Simulated scan of single mutants.
Amino acid sequence: MKPRKIPMRKDIVTGEMVPKKELVRIVRTPEGNVELDPTNRANGRGAYISLSVEVAEMAKKKRTFDRVFETKLDDNFYDELIAYVDHQAARKELFGDAK
């Protein structure tokens, strides 16, 4: 039997190719709002970031999503992102690969 292909996406902060399950999607909706997309199905332009607090803090420091989505985001968005990534990393550690 042929092994199943693992979808890979690029982490926009580090530039590394990572399995899609290990990333969180950030989306700019058609209305222009930038938000977290835990379902990976929201309409709009998406970008991915690793489930690592260090990477999320680096994104805040470099203002990565301001540049990627060509908009000005406040620190609240980045703080929400860091909290979400921290929660998901802890959840993954507790429950394993189950999401």
Rank of each mutant, 00 (worst) to 15 (best):
K62T: 09
V68P: 07
V24W: 11
R9D: 08
K72L: 01
V53D: 10
R63A: 13
P7Y: 04
V24L: 15
H87M: 09
R28T: 06
T29A: 01
T14D: 06
K2D: 11
A98M: 02
L81P: 14
V18Y: 11
T39A: 14
R63L: 11
M58F: 07
Y84Q: 07
M17N: 15
L73H: 07
P30W: 00
D37G: 07
R4A: 08
V55A: 09
D75N: 08
V55E: 09
R41Y: 07
I26R: 04
K99R: 12
V24S: 10
E31Q: 06
K10E: 10
I6T: 15
D66Y: 05
I49M: 13
A90I: 03
G96C: 04
E35T: 11
K5S: 11
A89C: 11
D11G: 07
A83I: 10
A59L: 07
G15E: 02
A90G: 12
D86W: 05
R25S: 09
E80M: 05
R63K: 14
F77W: 03
V13K: 03
D79K: 11
E54Q: 15
V53Q: 13
D79Y: 08
D86R: 09
N40V: 08
D74I: 00
A89P: 14
K61G: 09
T14C: 02
A47V: 10
R28Y: 03
N43R: 10
E31W: 00
A42D: 07
V55M: 07
D75Y: 03
K5T: 12
R63M: 08
G15T: 02
A89S: 15
E35G: 03
R41M: 04
R9C: 07
I49L: 14
N76F: 06
K92T: 11
I82P: 15
S52W: 08
P19Q: 06
N40G: 10
L51F: 15
K5I: 09
A90V: 02
T64V: 13
V24E: 13
N40M: 10
L51W: 12
H87I: 01
S52C: 10
P19T: 04
V53Y: 08
L36D: 12
F65N: 01
M58E: 15
R9P: 12
D79W: 04
R91N: 13
P19V: 05
V68R: 03
D74H: 04
N33G: 00
A89V: 12
F65L: 01
D37I: 04
A89M: 13
A83F: 13
